[in-house]
Design a protein around this nucleic acid. Structure first.
Lengths: 225, 225
DNA sequence: TCAAAAGTGTTAATAGTACACCCATGA
DNA sequence: TCATGGGTGTACTATTAACACTTTTGA
C-alpha cells in the first residue's frame, strides 16, 4: 500500500487570496508589496503554504485571517494554478480563493505590518507570477455569482442604503443601472428589509437603512441583478 | 531562498476526471471498478498523480488519454478537494476536471483494460472518497456552462441532426424542450450550419445533418439554450 | 432659496412560451 | 397504407428597459 503512493512526487501547495473590498465606492483589491524573494519589490496577492494539519480551504481562511484579522468571511475557490514554472523559485501548485470583506472591519495594524494596500481594480500594478490570471478569473467568477446570489452584500456594512447597494452593483457590473428599475427589483426581495433607521451621512434628507435577513433569504432565495 | 520553501510540507497531488458521454441518448459517466486499494471493489473516477514533468492541466489530459486514448478533448477544471482525510490511505490533494467526449471515438480496448464502464448519470453507484461531491459539482458547472456556450456539441458526432441536438440538451437540462422553439433558437446561431447530407439511420424520411463552424462561432458567439 | 441626494409608476420593446398540423419514406 | 420521426409559424405572456419629476433638508 505504501508503494502505491510513494512512487509519486510531492509538491508544495499554496493558497492565494484575492481580497475584494469597497474603497470610496470603488471595487478594490488588497495587495502586498513583496519585501521578500522571489520577485521582491513587485506586488502580489496574500498567500501562504498549506500545512499538514489543515485542509486547503482552512489554509485559505488562515491566510486571510493573518492579513485582515477576519474570520467567517465569504470565500470561494477560484481554481488551481499548476504550471511547472509558475513560481520561479521552486515548483509550487497554488489554489486561488476570492474573499469579499467589509472594509470597515478589518485590522489596520495587521494590514500595515504586511505592507498591504487597497488598489482600485481598474488600476492594478504589475503583479508577480500568474497572479494577474488568478485575479481575472476571480473577477469573472465573482461578477457572475454576484448577479445570481446576493453575495455582494458582504462588501457592504450590515446596514446600508439603497444608493450604496446600487452603487455597489454598478461597480461590480461596471455599468450604470436605472434607479427605479433597481429599486423595483430590490423591493421584490423580501429578505432585503427596510429598517426604521436613517443614514444622514451622505445626504441632507437622509436615506433609509436596509438589512439582509438570512432566514427570509433561505425561505425564498430569488435574486437577479 | 531555499529555507523560504523548505520549512513547508509537501503533498501528493492527483487529478480526477469526470468523463461525460452520451450513451443511448442518455448522459453517462465513465467510471472504474477499483481493483486496487484503498477502497478496492468500489467504483471511482479515473485518476492519477501529478508528476514532476507536467502541469496539473497536463496531468489531467494524460490521465484522460490513458483511459480513452483521446487527445484534444474539451476539459474544464472543476475544483480542488483538499480535506485532510479525503483519501484514507495517505494525504492527497486532488484537482477534479470534467471532460466531454464523443462516445463513437474512444478506444474500447483501453477502457476494457481499466474495467471502466459507462454509467447513467441518474443511476450512479456508491463511489469512493469524495468522488460524489466532485461529480455533483462537475454536473452543476457543466450544466451552467452548456446553457451559455455550445460546449455540449462535444458530446455529439461532428455531423448531427437537430433531433440529436435537442435530445442532448434535454438530457443535460433534464427537461423537455419544445421542438419549434428549439429550432427557432438554433436557426439564429449562424455557426450551426445545415449540410446537404441526410441521416437516414433514425427515421424513414431522413434528417438533415448539421455541423459546428468554429470560425463563424468566433465571429458571433451568441448562444443561449 | 437652492443644491444634492432620496424616492416614486407607467409605457414600450423584447424575449420567452405555448401550441397542431403536414411531409416524406420504407416496411 | 400507415407508422414513424422530420419539419414548420403564429399568438400570447412575462420580463426587461426606458424615461422625469417631486421631496426633504441643511447650509
Amino acid at each position: 500500500m505504501t508503494t502505491y503512493y510513494n512512487i509519486n512526487p510531492q509538491f508544495y501547495v499554496s493558497v492565494d487570496c484575492i481580497i475584494f473590498g469597497l474603497n470610496e465606492g470603488e471595487l478594490s483589491l488588497l495587495l502586498l508589496k513583496r519585501n521578500f524573494e522571489p520577485e521582491k519589490g513587485k506586488w502580489s496577492l496574500m498567500g501562504g503554504f498549506v500545512q499538514d494539519n489543515e485542509s486547503v480551504d482552512d489554509a485559505a481562511k488562515r491566510v486571510l485571517k493573518e492579513l485582515t484579522g477576519l474570520e467567517n468571511v465569504y470565500m470561494e475557490q477560484v481554481g488551481t494554478f499548476g504550471e511547472i514554472n509558475r513560481d520561479p523559485g521552486e515548483r509550487v501548485i497554488s489554489v486561488a480563493y476570492y474573499a469579499l470583506i467589509n472594509v470597515d472591519e478589518y485590522d489596520r495594524k495587521l494590514v500595515e505590518k504586511h505592507h498591504a494596500k487597497w488598489i482600485n481594480i481598474h488600476d492594478l500594478p504589475d503583479l508577480s507570477f500568474d497572479h494577474p490570471a488568478m485575479i481575472s478569473k476571480a473577477k469573472e467568477l465573482m461578477r457572475r455569482k454576484a448577479s445570481l446570489e446576493p453575495i455582494g452584500l458582504n462588501l457592504l456594512p450590515r446596514l446600508f442604503t439603497l444608493s450604496q447597494m446600487q452603487s455597489l452593483y454598478e461597480t461590480i457590473q461596471d455599468e450604470t443601472i436605472d434607479k427605479r428599475n433597481f429599486r423595483k427589483k430590490v423591493a421584490e426581495m423580501d429578505y432585503i428589509e427596510k429598517t426604521e433607521m436613517i443614514d444622514k451621512s451622505s445626504s441632507r434628507r437622509g436615506a433609509y437603512l436596509y438589512k439582509f435577513n438570512d432566514k427570509a433569504y433561505s425561505r425564498d432565495p430569488r435574486f437577479k441583478l
